[in-house]
């Protein structure tokens, strides 16, 4: 029943996302070619991008939480957002007119951040987390330096990207959807081992999990997914932190349920947030990261209170 409700919610949100924007268009009764173009060439690909990015962020969040054994972990906890932002701003600095260069800069920056963290992956969850937090501070400083050097006309674009921006995404939608499906399939395949990892590394190992290999695979997978999501849409906070917890509240703790639910739920939240971001101050747009927090925080807190009662 809950799965059915989640899928119905996705369908409804996609319809809502198609209908809303600068002008309201009934997706079932587009009156002319212009409306058809707006619906299917502009809004629909963007909604699919939002769905895939949201799902990828939520999956990465769930993985980082179990990898680090910390419920406060999220995709950017190890500094990937900072390094990706630094890369994006570097791209913006050299070729301010090219969205593609900015995305490439973000992707390269994200991977520089990932490689830096991987040097510390053998130290165990707590020390890796500590190293990640310190690296995040370093990347923040680099980012601040780059922003200070950035010409004034690039600042708005940079801040907009850093708060999440689906309007300039130039990654092909099929690529993102295929990545979403592959990430989910990998997650489901690893789900039993991840469940055992919830008991702690020693218990997991005693139950037959090769913890060292699992941790390496998980770090690589979660980082790659984060890098892709950041490249597509900038740094969108909150989805990766809260959606896995929200799905645990609704579907229980086992990863065979949490991961598919997060992949769908993260997508749902971002579709909803992006629809609101395109509509509230149309024809201008709000940064989508603001909306993910404004929509998601009350829902999460309500469920948390209901659960504890």
């Amino acid at each position: 029943m809950r799965w059915f409700a989640l899928l119905v919610a996705v369908a409804l949100c996609l319809l809502l996302g198609l209908a809303t924007g600068e002008q309201w268009i009934n997706p079932f009764a587009a009156s002319d070619a212009l409306e058809q173009t707006i619906l299917w060439d502009l809004r629909f690909p963007r909604l699919l991008t939002a769905f895939a990015v949201g799902g990828l962020l939520a999956l990465a969040g769930a993985w980082f939480q179990v990898l680090l054994g910390n419920p406060l972990a999220e995709p950017y906890v190890l500094g990937v957002a900072g390094s990706a932002s630094a890369g994006a701003v570097t791209g913006l600095m050299f070729m301010p007119e090219s969205a593609w260069v900015m995305s490439a800069g973000a992707f390269i920056g994200a991977w520089i951040g990932i490689v830096a963290v991987m040097f510390f992956s053998h130290l165990g969850a707590n020390r890796m987390l500590l190293a990640g937090v310190v690296l995040a501070a370093f990347w923040s400083a680099v980012l601040a330096l780059l922003l200070a050097l950035l010409p004034e006309q690039g600042l708005f674009r940079a801040f907009s990207w850093m708060m999440g921006d689906l309007s300039h995404s130039d990654l092909p939608v099929p690529l993102l959807l295929i990545a979403w499906a592959i990430a989910l399939a990998c997650g489901v395949m690893l789900s039993r081992a991840l469940d055992k990892l919830l008991l702690g590394e020693r218990h997991a190992e005693a139950l037959g999990v090769d913890v060292k290999t699992l941790r390496q695979r998980l770090l690589l997978l979660a980082s790659a997914v984060t890098a892709l999501a950041v490249t597509a849409a900038g740094t969108i906070g909150f989805v990766g932190l809260v959606i896995p917890h929200l799905m645990r509240l609704l579907f229980g703790s086992l990863h065979s349920a949490v991961l598919p639910a997060s992949a769908i739920g993260g997508g749902l939240l971002l579709v909803l947030a992006d629809s609101a971001a395109r509509t509230i101050i149309a024809p201008a747009e709000l940064p989508v990261g603001i909306l993910t927090a404004i929509i998601g925080v009350p829902v999460f807190l309500y469920l948390l209170l209901r659960r504890s009662q």
């Binding site: 419920p71 919830l198 008991l199 020693r202 005693a206 139950l207 645990r248 703790s253």
Partner: peptide, 21 residues
């Protein structure tokens, strides 16, 4: 089979799920 420290509880596993693992 090894029984050691109590496992962490942050992620909401139930007794049944823990035993099934």
């Amino acid at each position: 089979a090894w029984q050691g420290e109590l496992p962490p509880t942050e992620f909401g596993l139930t007794v049944k799920q823990r035993l099934e693992l």
